[in-house]
């Protein structure tokens, strides 16, 4: 059992580990282990508009998608978690549907639909499509958070003299903040990583990074991909480890400093 486990760990870890040395390789094509090391492909990435533009497009599209998704999902989640009404279970189900439909099916639909609207190959078109795909993910995260929210906190606030609006601003929102942030982060990543729909509808104008990577892998297997992979990998690592590091740092600070520090900065 142990041996199988270790083999599985190697199987999972190997592809993740291999891209980092590849990005420093000086070989012209896929060769591992690399014959030599240099930073050339990093320079290539950061000076090539063919790579930087899609990166920028992706950031732009993912950001807009996140904003639009949250604007739609936050009120809807409150309605679905906090209220009971006829057709609620159907609405719950509909929220998840974009997750159930294979992306290739949506890609065909968007290709034709956005084409009719003259939105194909535009940033706006990609944002509209990505928002649909991000909705269920943001909803799942946020509704789990909202279900765990203790309504007595809001009751307490009201009994203490806070109007419904004040309650929302001073109590509901700050307590839900981590859930909202994670929900937004998931929406962002969903859009940033989404490949299939982007391949079909982003065109050259709104080309996203995954689309560019896909084309590049398909055509020439440009080693710059290893650089991007390493950078993306690093971003994930930071995102995963940062909360732990931050918590550790904070508790260490809290231990070393007396409890006189102003709580205003929290």
């Amino acid at each position: 059992m142990r041996l199988i486990g270790i083999l599985v760990i190697v199987f999972i870890a190997a592809p993740l580990v291999i891209v980092v040395p590849m990005s420093f390789s000086d070989a012209r094509s896929l060769q591992f282990p690399p014959p030599g090391y240099w930073l050339g492909y990093y320079r290539a990435y950061f000076s090539d508009m063919n790579w930087l533009l899609p990166t920028w497009n992706s950031i732009l599209i993912a950001t807009a998608t996140t904003v639009l998704t949250m604007a739609l999902v936050v009120p809807a989640t409150f309605a679905l978690v906090r209220h009971r009404f006829a057709g609620k279970s159907f609405a719950d189900l509909m929220m998840l549907m974009p997750l159930a439909v294979p992306h290739i099916v949506m890609a065909v639909g968007y290709y034709s639909f956005l084409g009719d609207l003259r939105l194909v190959h535009t940033h706006f078109g990609v944002v509209l499509a990505h928002t649909c795909l991000s909705v269920p993910i943001a909803f799942l995260v946020l509704s789990a958070n909202l279900k765990g929210f203790d309504r007595n906190l809001e009751r307490a606030a009201q009994s203490l003299g806070a109007s419904p609006v004040q309650t929302f601003i001073h109590v509901t929102l700050p307590i839900l903040r981590p859930g909202l942030l994670i929900s937004a982060l998931f929406a962002f990543i969903q859009s940033f990583d989404e490949t299939v729909v982007a391949i079909f509808i982003s065109g050259r104008n709104a080309e996203t990074l995954p689309r560019k990577m896909f084309d590049s892998i398909r055509q020439e297997a440009d080693p710059v991909i290893a650089v991007i992979s390493t950078l993306l990998f690093l971003a994930v690592l930071v995102a995963l480890v940062a909360p732990f590091a931050w918590r550790g740092l904070r508790s260490r600070l809290a231990e070393s400093a007396p409890r006189s520090a102003s709580p205003a900065g929290q």
């Binding site: 203790d150 009751r155 700050p174 307590i175």
Partner: peptide, 8 residues
């Protein structure tokens, strides 16, 4: 019953 103190 559960005090409902604001955790933040």
């Amino acid at each position: 019953q559960n005090y409902a103190l604001f955790p933040h």
